[in-house]
């Protein structure tokens, strides 16, 4: 079965439908599937629920899907750098389910691992715990959180081989592996597809079993907070 596609639009063909749940990798603008996001924008799919730690910034990353009003709901831990996100949320145009960052990552991991729910201390005694089952283990209170299974996962990696084995680079790994595993279908975009046999099998970060479709492309890789120090 061929996993490599010529373009983001071709790789998403037949996978998109209105009202779907998409899990996206990335942290801030680092390691985001920018090509697939743009292709979803162009496809015009509507009423999306997107599980992603952030929503990009105005005009880049998932922010472009908010600008085009394709999003109905975000499941995120942080919206601080996106004015349009905050405006749509405060005006009630966009639903927002806040998840603590580790809870969101574990919900994706669990969903991909066949675990429908798990107990965590995170959020006990806060608004996050409201309406959730509480249970005591060894004298401590935990809340039940559900695994996420998405209709589609979109992720970005550094390198792939044609079988879909992925290697990430530095902190651009972040949410990509858990997001990839929790989708019924996962499409990955990478900077380079290398020949079979050229990735060290011991150094694969995400085995190709999780990756169904693959594209190679040019990434802008925008930096959100350029911070430097002076040379001595």
């Amino acid at each position: 079965m061929k996993k490599v596609y010529d373009s983001a639009a071709a790789a998403l063909d037949g996978l998109l439908f209105d009202g779907m749940l998409i899990a996206a990798g990335g942290f801030g603008l680092c390691g985001i599937p920018e090509l697939l996001i743009q292709a979803i924008r162009e496809a015009g799919t509507r009423d999306l629920t997107v599980a992603s730690n952030n929503a990009g910034v105005d005009g880049f990353g998932l922010g472009v899907l908010l600008e085009s009003r394709q999003g109905r709901k975000m499941i995120s831990s942080y919206v601080g750098e996106n004015a349009e996100f905050m405006r749509q949320y405060l005006s009630g145009e966009l639903e927002l389910e806040f998840n603590p960052q580790g809870t969101l990552a574990e919900r994706m991991r669990a969903g991909g691992a066949g675990i429908p729910g798990f107990y965590t201390k995170t959020g006990v005694g806060t608004v996050i715990a409201e309406g959730k089952e509480h249970k005591e283990f060894d004298g401590e209170t935990y809340i039940l959180e559900r695994g996420i299974v998405a209709d589609l996962s979109i992720v970005k990696a550094w390198k792939a081989d044609p079988s879909g084995n992925l290697v990430f680079r530095k902190t651009a790994r972040n949410f990509n592996p858990p997001a990839a595993t929790c989708g019924r279908v996962c499409v990955a975009e990478v900077e380079e597809i290398v020949p079979l046999g050229s990735l060290e099998p011991d150094s694969i970060h995400l085995p190709g079993i999780y990756v169904h479709r693959l594209i190679q492309g040019q990434h802008e890789k925008r930096i959100e907070q350029r911070t430097v120090r002076k040379r001595a």
């Binding site: 680092c30 994706m108 530095k170 790994r173 858990p178 890789k221 930096i223």
Partner: peptide, 25 residues
């Protein structure tokens, strides 16, 4: 600066000889 190497505040940072990377989960 390396776009693939940031801290939780999204600032560009650097690695050390002891650095390890891993996913969010």
């Amino acid at each position: 600066e390396d776009a693939d190497l940031i801290n939780a505040g999204k600032q560009t940072i650097t690695e050390l000889p002891k650095t390890a990377y891993f996913d969010s989960a």
